[in-house]
Design a protein around this nucleic acid. Structure first.
Lengths: 342, 342
DNA sequence: CACGATGCTGCCAACGCTTGCAGCAATTGT
DNA sequence: ACAATTGCTGCAAGCGTTGGCAGCATCGTG
């Protein structure tokens, strides 16, 4: 057995209450008592049993984060930011990776919710109905009492009716990208789409479609592709028969695979064909030529999701409207795009 | 307030013990009772309060994972494996990212240990002394009782005396790499070293040194470099004045930055200079030419660390010697290496 | 028919800490 | 000098589950 509060109290010849207060609300006990308690606690090697504390106080200081694939740089960058912000605010992060299986999300959410004070769902793949269910988890009534044990949920990179969330507005970035391509002379653009279950893919597709119509470019679509380098390579083999002179990929992974394979085929990226990716962290610089990309503020997304969640955790937030925040994206021009050669 | 066991018991007209057993040890109650309890619990929307359960049972079913940088693909791949294995065994993962700050490791370990049943420290940067301290956390004695509240620790990618761990034996892989370069005619090899605090860097350096002596190649060292693409780019500017015809980088990030910058400088990688990386996940294929790399089984490392940890969690493991496991590395030959041109 | 075995269920203490309330002394104001 | 206030500490009731022990039918066996 470990040293408990009772042990410390016994040695101090004080009641447990006082010891507990000395350790948790130092301002509520005499300064001398406090330092004596602190010293003895230290000498005995007392460490508070956090689990018990959580049980009594109804909070674990844990936030749960669910991502589709932590190995995807976009999510690992975001996770890093979540973790960092949470740590600074005194919270720990429990991580769940669904490996892109939408069906697992409710399960994972349920399990995390049992121990976390709140949940962040990043780019969830499940449908709106299921997500809404997760968001207001089991509001059953019983014996005239409201049922509470529901963890607040914040969605990142996904809009769900009536739920709190942070999203990245990709519209502007995509529009910039298309406009830039058109200004370079490209008239036929190919979108390499991401997994159908991705809400972002829908948005990107819409945004590109609208931009192409606005700027008078023709749009073709290829896909869906998994957000992985291998998939991008496969895309390279298909794209050349489409007559497009420029491609926008669902994400940098696909774009990277694409230009690697094109380079292998001796196609000069940035000259014979222009490629634009969509940001997943610092990877866009790994290629040669370096990837022109629509930068997504993944780190800010994560940090903000934490802020929103902690805000909701405050009981004062109970009544308030779930907050929605929108971040901006922007085009970063590098070497993988260039003037259309006739 | 939420529905508690007591509520369910009241509706069932049974004692809490019976309800508890019906839900947790179904075989210990009458089949009819059990299904009645299950039905009513479901109807009332009862969900067991895991925190209380943990408090009583002394286990949280959480394992803590500490990594230096989750945005580094090596760790995100490993984390994914840890998470996956843990989930399959009924555990959740709490993640801490120290952002390469060795000094933070003890703090993070302490906090995680308060809520986790055990800890995995991946490539910790702190020194052996501190790590040993973490591993046997505070064995103070008091009033004739042993102090237990110490979470078992497993180290991944680091050997610590007397502690359990999984490491990757990079010796063979590095030797293969050097041997291969020599067989291609290279006699002067440059090692781009990683951060000095990295234990792996020491091992890799030693391994390469030994291999160079064994195969009669001359070794120069450049560095230290942070494991990031940017750092690799900087390396490119330095390496060309060193007369080496081949380089081995501390990791793929550095290698990727290196060859991207070299390509920019119109140096033909794989012909004028050969580059070998050390695996961080699937990135080695992102470059053109694709990176020859020493493959490190990061996913296996993670899964195995979980297995070891869960093993140690079994009280039967109390006496046993802390297990040590060693995984193999191997060279994967791709396009970034080639015959030396005179 | 009696007796032990067996199968279920209930009682109750325990887990370690927090916190509202009350008690008590010292301090302050009048 | 007395009441009111202030500052500190102790008491005890929880928090929601679990599990050892005991009680009580029911069953099978000699």
């Amino acid at each position: 057995m470990a040293v408990t509060l009772a042990d410390v109290a016994a040695v101090c010849r004080l009641s447990m209450s006082t010891v507990s207060r000395a350790l948790s609300h130092p301002e509520r006990v005499n300064a001398r008592t406090r330092s004596r308690v602190e010293r003895i606690a230290r000498e005995l090697g007392y460490v508070r049993h956090e689990v018990t504390r959580s049980q009594v106080s109804r909070r674990t200081a844990i936030i749960g984060l669910i991502v589709p694939d932590i190995a995807n740089p976009f999510f690992s960058v975001m996770t890093k930011a979540v973790q960092d912000r949470a740590w600074k605010k005194g919270y720990s992060v429990m991580l769940a990776d669904t490996d892109e299986r939408a069906a697992d999300e409710p399960d994972r959410a349920r399990v995390l919710a049992e121990q976390a004070d709140g949940l962040i769902l990043a780019s969830p793949r499940a449908d709106d109905g299921r997500l809404r269910e997760i968001a207001r988890s089991s509001p059953v009534a019983f014996a005239n009492r409201e049922i509470a044990r529901s963890s607040p949920v914040v969605f990142a990179n996904r809009e769900v009716d009536g739920a709190a969330g942070v999203v990245i507005d990709e519209y502007a970035g995509m529009n910039e990208a298309v406009q830039y391509l058109v200004s370079l002379g490209h008239r036929s653009i190919c979108y390499l789409s991401g997994p159908g279950r991705s809400w972002s893919d829908q948005r990107r597709r819409e945004a590109i479609g609208a931009a192409c119509r606005a700027h008078g470019a023709e749009l073709t679509e290829l896909g869906p592709f998994e957000p992985q380098i291998q998939a991008g390579m496969r895309a390279a083999d298909v794209i050349r028969f489409r007559g497009a002179t420029a491609a926008i990929a669902y994400d940098d992974m696909i774009a990277l695979g694409l230009i690697a394979r094109l380079a292998e085929r001796r196609v000069k990226v940035g000259r014979e064909i222009s490629v634009i990716g969509i940001d997943c962290g610092p990877l866009s610089e790994a290629a040669h030529p370096m990837l022109t990309t629509v930068h997504l503020p993944g780190a800010e997304l994560g940090a903000l999701a934490v802020d929103l969640l902690l805000d909701r955790l405050d009981p004062a937030a109970a009544g308030r409207e779930p907050p929605r925040v929108r971040l901006e994206s922007r085009l970063v021009i590098r070497g993988s795009t260039g003037l259309r050669v006739p």
